[in-house]
Simulated scan of single mutants.
Amino acid sequence: MIDDLTVKAADGGAVALDAYRGKVLLVVNTASKCGFTPQYEGLEALHRTYGARGFAVLGFPCNQFGAQEPGDAAEIANFCTLTYDVTFPVFAKVDVNGANADPLFERLKAEAPGLMGSKAVKWNFTKFLIDREGRTVRRYAPTTRPEDIARDIEALL
């Protein structure tokens, strides 16, 4: 369950994930200069389609893969808003692998390992679906388009 964790907001403040208790969540490590960056559009569509029913997308910029998220928090927010009209929360930049991996991603990777039990996040736009009880239900590869997750989201709502 992730609702006992705290993450860092884009402005540096703390956000307790228990604020999302009872919601279905899709947690995504994002990047502004990646081949998968256009997925922001699909993520925003999911957020708008299912938000009123208790769903939220949570974006976590990450610069660990090909240095594809080089900007600071203001640049990232500006890009997301101006380019993709993102309204879902985009938090502070995080590491998802390694010694400095954010505790949220450590928990997600442990609860939903990748292929052949791999714990590491392989690339930008890896997605984790979390149920209303705060349990990680499934991991999706970066190549999985957001619209292809809609059926799984609906099943949890």
Rank of each mutant, 00 (worst) to 15 (best):
L26V: 04
V96F: 03
Y40D: 02
F91N: 07
K119Y: 13
A99Q: 13
G114D: 04
R53V: 11
I153C: 01
P113M: 13
E147W: 05
A16H: 08
Y40K: 09
A67K: 15
G71Q: 15
V121W: 00
R21H: 15
V15N: 01
E44Q: 11
T83V: 14
I153A: 02
N124R: 02
Q68T: 09
A56G: 11
D131L: 06
M1C: 14
G98W: 11
N100R: 13
K119H: 14
K122P: 07
E111R: 14
G42W: 05
R48N: 12
T87L: 10
G13P: 04
R107C: 01
E69S: 13
D72C: 13
I149L: 02
G117T: 12
E111K: 12
A31K: 05
E44V: 02
R135A: 07
V7P: 00
T87N: 09
V86G: 01
R21I: 13
V90T: 05
G42F: 07
G134T: 02
L104Q: 04
R151F: 11
L129P: 00
L157T: 13
V137R: 04
T81C: 11
A67M: 15
V96E: 00
F105R: 00
R135Y: 11
A101D: 05
G13Q: 13
Y50L: 04
V121E: 02
D18I: 01
D152A: 04
I153L: 04
K33T: 12
P61W: 07
D11Y: 08
E69D: 14
F55R: 06
F79K: 03
G71F: 15
V57G: 07
G59I: 03
A77T: 15
R139F: 03
E133G: 05
F88E: 04
L115Q: 14
C34H: 10
L43D: 01
E75F: 15
D95W: 03
P89D: 04
D152M: 05
K33G: 11
Y50K: 02
P38D: 13
A110W: 01
N78L: 15
A10G: 05
N63K: 07
T37C: 11
H47K: 04
M116T: 12
T143I: 15
P142N: 00
Y84K: 10
N97V: 02
F55A: 08
A101M: 06
F79V: 02
I153S: 00
I153R: 00
E69K: 09
G42M: 11
L43A: 06
E133N: 09
A141D: 15
R138H: 11
E154Y: 03
L104D: 03
E75M: 15
D4Q: 13
D131V: 05
V57R: 10
L46A: 04
A9I: 10
V96I: 06
I2F: 09
D152Y: 02
V94E: 00
G54R: 01
V57K: 11
V28G: 01
P142G: 01
I153F: 01
F128P: 00
G117E: 14
G12V: 12
E154P: 00
A120C: 08
K122H: 13
L82N: 12
E111T: 10
A101S: 07
A14D: 10
T37E: 12
R145H: 15
L26W: 02
D85T: 12
G13A: 15
A16G: 10
Q64G: 05
W123F: 11
F79T: 03
E41T: 14
K93V: 07
P103K: 03
G12T: 11
F88M: 07
I130G: 00
